[in-house]
Design a protein around this nucleic acid. Structure first.
Ligand SMILES: [Mg+2]
Length: 305
DNA sequence: ATTTGTTTAACTCGTT
DNA sequence: AACGAGTTAAACAAAT
């Protein structure tokens, strides 16, 4: 069942992350410090998927690899797998920003590879990882072709060498452009050449990878705690932006929605069967979300590679 | 039989 | 209230 080229042996490419909550429990004489390990990460599935794909060497991942990445990185998702994985699948299929590209030959692969639509851009700018302003949709008005689009279809030219990024169909059948021969030749998977050809636009991924292989959050935690985002609307870019504190796209405190009020999934819920869809149960602003992601996201990611 | 994908539909929730 | 993005459940078809 192993993945195709993702040889399990090469664990090097995987973020083993800070799974402190597994077998590393015994030693930790720390009465304080909660176990925030399974707090729900402040990302939508779309964000998670995008992050996963983005950080992958080839910018593509199989379903299972995506699952795995999420699980490895976020302990929260070690529970209810059946549930959220269904959601992941739904997201992949439903959202046009995720494009499925079939694997080339007959690899021992299970599913196809999932990639990001080249035009999806930075869907979560503004630090909004929970809700995009606008869903990325392909122009697909079939009923009537309002040709207000001067989209010049300039392609054809090349016939000898096919460009590997051409798998975007409108949305009927599969984007059948086998992976041809991307960089699958390398035994390691990653192509050694650090190409810059593409767009440099690669934000997203609130976690930056330090040179020493440390994964750390950039927009979260830290200053988030006390801050100006007290009672602000989490989303609403317009409001958020038109304030005087706009243009700070430097590297300061990129404004992020607070993440304090996530779609409540209450912190750790022991074993409640709160399957009661009646109204909302206590919606208290849990007074104890102080820590949240304190420094959870500051752990080494890649072994050393 | 399990995994992977697609699709429909109901539902939550913040914004307008 | 309406709208829209996101979540969850569920019913399949296909592939493995
Ligand atoms: Mg899709």
């Amino acid at each position: 069942m192993g993945g195709p080229s993702a040889s399990p042996a090469s664990s090097s490419a995987y973020p083993l992350g800070y799974c402190q909550a597994e077998t590393e429990f015994q030693r930790d004489p720390r009465p304080y410090r909660r176990n925030y390990s399974h707090a729900k990460p402040p990302y939508s599935y779309i964000s998670l998927i995008t992050m996963a794909i983005q950080q992958s060497p080839n910018k593509m991942m199989t379903l299972n690899e995506i699952y795995q990445w999420i699980i490895d990185l976020f302990p929260y998702y070690r529970q209810n797998q059946q549930r959220w994985q269904n959601s992941i699948r739904h997201s992949l299929s439903f959202n046009d920003c995720f494009v499925k590209v079939p694997r080339s030959p007959e690899k021992p692969g299970k599913g196809s590879y999932w990639t990001l639509h080249p035009d999806s851009g930075n869907m979560f700018e503004n630090g909004c990882y929970l809700r995009r302003q606008k869903r990325f949709k392909c122009e697909k008005s079939r009923t009537e072709d309002s040709e207000k689009k001067k989209l010049a279809n300039l392609e054809d030219e090349n016939s000898s060498s096919q460009s590997p990024k051409n798998a975007i169909n409108r949305g009927d059948t599969d984007s059948s452009v086998a992976i041809s021969q991307l960089n699958m030749a390398s035994p390691v998977g990653i192509s050694p050449n650090s190409e810059h050809g593409g767009s440099s636009l690669q934000l997203l991924y609130p976690m930056s990878l330090s040179s020493d292989g440390y994964l750390c959050m950039v927009g979260e935690d830290a200053q988030m705690k006390h801050e100006q985002f007290a009672g602000r609307r989490p989303f609403s870019i317009t409001q958020l932006m038109s304030s005087e504190n706009a243009q700070t796209y430097s590297s300061k405190t990129d404004m992020c929605p607070t993440t304090d009020h996530l779609p409540h999934y209450q912190n750790y819920t022991p074993d409640y069967h709160n399957m009661t869809p009646s109204k909302n149960l206590m919606d208290m602003p849990s007074s104890s979300d102080a820590g949240y992601y304190s420094n959870v996201y500051s752990r080494p990611i890649l072994s050393s590679l």
